[in-house]
């Protein structure tokens, strides 16, 4: 309602202004509302005439004819993500904008479809979220998560838009680097259909609502990419006996090498390499190394702990394509 009154006052300003002001405001009037005058605007036309009869002059005014502008239902949906959004163990966040391209206030129902032809996998819609604070970034706990059965934008003024986030989880079978698309569709709540379809009395200001060229429904596709990682652990051993050869005799030192190889485009977090000391052997103090750098045996500032109960090296978060090698030695009793 506020928008409507504001528009009326501005329209009045245009009608009464001077040439210079007109040239400044007229282009604005053209661009301010992409789809034209607001629903509910009254078009009022009156003509006046001046004349002479003999030597006297007079004037006469016509009746006023009034036409109310009805509501045009139009919508546009666009994808704001330029690159595929990354889905890991956390859902991908796809960003769309929904714009009311009609001339009246309107809310739009939202549907998300993850089953698109050509998908490597079909994602699972975890939630549909409105960008409540309008910053274009999904803020968990701040932005409004829509509840199922009420998936809709708030009422948007003409030419106003809102951003919508779709949080999409990877399905169980998704493989690393596979891509998928999700379609967001927005439909005018008043109704949609063939352009020209009208809904009597449903428009702003009590007029009709008429479906525009967009059919009052629009959609857009956004892409996501699976970013997963796998780990493989390879253990090898080398023996050095007291005689300089490689026989597993008492007193010989066995050096174990544990190679942790992370593959894939994602990363793995919270990794530890843990091993026990084989029976009949004794841990060689100070033999623990990570990527050739020595680690102390004690539980201290560095990543490793070594002793009679085994070794434990904390790797933390490792990106795909990285190999971490842990080395330690035992002596055969």
């Amino acid at each position: 309602m506020n928008t409507y009154l504001t528009h009326l006052s501005r329209a009045a300003g245009i009608a009464g202004c001077s040439l210079v002001a007109l040239s400044l405001t007229a282009p604005l009037a053209g661009t301010a509302h992409a789809t034209g005058v607001l629903a509910g605007t009254l078009i009022e036309n009156t003509a006046t005439a001046t004349y002479q009869t003999g030597s006297t002059t007079g004037s006469v005014t016509s009746n006023k004819v009034t036409v109310k502008v009805d509501e045009l239902l139009d919508v546009a949906v666009a994808t704001l993500s330029t690159a595929p959004a990354t889905a890991t163990s956390e859902p991908a966040v796809l960003i769309y904008s929904v714009t009311n391209s009609g001339n009246g206030p309107e809310a739009f129902n939202l549907t998300a479809d993850p089953k698109i032809s050509g998908n490597g996998f079909d994602g699972t819609i975890k939630s549909v979220v409105l960008d409540s604070n309008g910053n274009g970034i999904y803020d968990p706990g701040v932005d409004t998560v829509l509840t199922a059965g009420a998936l809709a934008t708030p009422v948007l003024g003409p030419d106003k838009s809102t951003k919508v986030f779709l949080l999409v989880d990877l399905p169980a079978g998704a493989a690393d680097a596979q891509t998928s698309q999700v379609r967001l569709t927005a439909t005018a709540q008043t109704g949609n259909g063939t352009p020209g379809t009208s809904f009597a009395g449903k428009g702003e200001g009590g007029g009709d609502a008429v479906v525009g060229l967009t059919t009052a429904a629009a959609n857009s596709l956004a892409a996501l990419i699976a970013s997963l990682a796998n780990i493989s652990l390879t253990k090898s051993a080398s023996i050095l006996d007291p005689f300089g050869t490689a026989k597993p005799v008492p007193g010989a030192v066995v050096t174990y090498s544990l190679a942790a190889k992370v593959t894939g485009s994602g990363s793995l977090d919270g990794l530890h390499v843990v091993d026990t000391i084989p029976n009949g052997t004794t841990y060689v103090p100070g033999s623990l190394k990570l990527d050739a750098a020595a680690l102390t045996d004690g539980a201290d500032g560095d990543a490793g702990v070594g002793g009679a109960s085994g070794i434990d090296v904390t790797l933390g978060k490792i990106a795909g394509g990285t190999t971490k090698t842990v080395v330690f030695s035992v002596k055969i009793n």
């Binding site: 329209a11 009045a12 245009i14 009608a15 005058v37 605007t41 078009i43 009022e44 036309n45 009156t46 003509a47 006046t48 005439a49 001046t50 004349y51 002479q52 009869t53 003999g54 016509s62 502008v69």
Partner: peptide
């Protein structure tokens, strides 16, 4: 806009002016 001269005399210099509605 339809005009009609109901009078007995001719009407001259008849100028009809119509401001366009802003919409």
């Amino acid at each position: 806009t339809r005009y009609h001269n109901d009078g007995a005399q001719a009407v001259t210099n008849f100028v009809v002016t119509n401001p366009l509605p802003s919409a």
